[in-house]
Design a protein around this nucleic acid. Sequence first.
DNA 1: TCTGGGGTCCTAGGACCC
DNA 2: TCTGGGGTCCTAGGACCC
Length: 423
Amino acid sequence: MFGLIDCNNFFVSCERVFRPSLIGRPVIVLSNNDGCAVALSNEAKALGFKRGDPYFKIKAQADRQGVVAFSGNHRLYGDMSARVMSVLRAEVVDIEVYSIDEAFLHLDPAIDDLEGYGRRLSRLVWRNTGIPVSLGIATTKTLAKIASHFAKKYPGYKGSCIIDNDEKRLKALNLTPIGDVWGIGRRLNRRLTEQGIVTALQFSQLERDKVRREMTITGERTWRELNGDPCITLEITAPDKRTMTSSRSFAKEIYDIESLQQAMCAFATILGRKLREQSSYALEMSVFVATNRFNERQLQYSNAVSYTLHEPTADTPTLARTAMTMLKSIYRPAYGIKKAGITITRLVPAECRQPSLFADLEDMAKRDRLMATLDSINASPGNPDVVRLAAMGSGLKDLTRREHASRLYTTRLADIISINCHK
DNA sequence: TCTGGGGTCCTAGGACCC
DNA sequence: TCTGGGGTCCTAGGACCC
């Protein structure tokens, strides 16, 4: 059997662990720049706020209604996620970490009371981490997803819902709008709805060949999974990333190249660290800039340039220097840049790294050692990112807005919570 | 004034090979 | 007047996910 654990309103729940007084109150977590609402508590949803709402449009109403807003604190969320996953890993046979707030599980079919087991597992995660979760159990991943929606929606399930026979399956599919099915996005939802297919049950009763023809192999897989035919497997080890991007929107339009170069250094720093984390090297890099697409009065400009490096690299200074040079070729002083970033592609694993014919191997080894040392210093919990490129200046801090940030409760010693006990 | 960031998979069509 | 057959690789665009 497959299980799908989904953390409820994950970012909001992370904030509430350290501010329990916010439990039961409307809370939202904002995207970069305090731009959009990306996570909402049930109370905030009940007030009509939606994921994706621009904060500046809802702020007045949110303030009036006592909504507490947080800037995204992704370091905290990443650490809380790791805690949740480690609790799960200790309990189940196999686990696929599917996203920051979700994991698929292989459950031992020998367990006779899966329903009770699921409830105990949900409760254990909550007890050990403070994060409330919903668990769905079924014979396929897609059905487990549906089961988890029910577990989340109806408190009666006590955190765990199981679909283990055809009667339950058909009932659940009939109650599930087609757009809520994993694999059916906005476009397909509209197309199917136009054809009168509005529930998952109706979709599952279409002719298989027709689904294959109109929705390709991915649609057919969803169809099979809904019909109880498992064809999406558990991926226990995450494959290496094939591309990586680091990009940001800025708080204000940027006209000067110095600030953009500073941002490039910050992006290169992030990508260098991520490359080294998965022991990969990048062979190609592209840099992009864009004006504010929402500002209709402004002349629009967006451009990108890409470049093949002389040899695969994961060296932050090399990435930064390259990006800054590339930036110059697309930089136009007349345009206010609202968003910029770097994408690296053609990533190769360490064992396939081929230096150029003229490479200075000693220098390469030296740079590798330097980066390893840098990573180990910056990994220290007391003070993350102490060593960085001078060209980075204050990095993205000055260029982005984060007015409602919470603390790094779990990864920075100075931010640890203190509790005052009164008699 | 203020609108996120980071990924993957699949297919069609063009380029190119023998 | 007549112009093969079979294959791979790459990329852009569209779809999806969180």
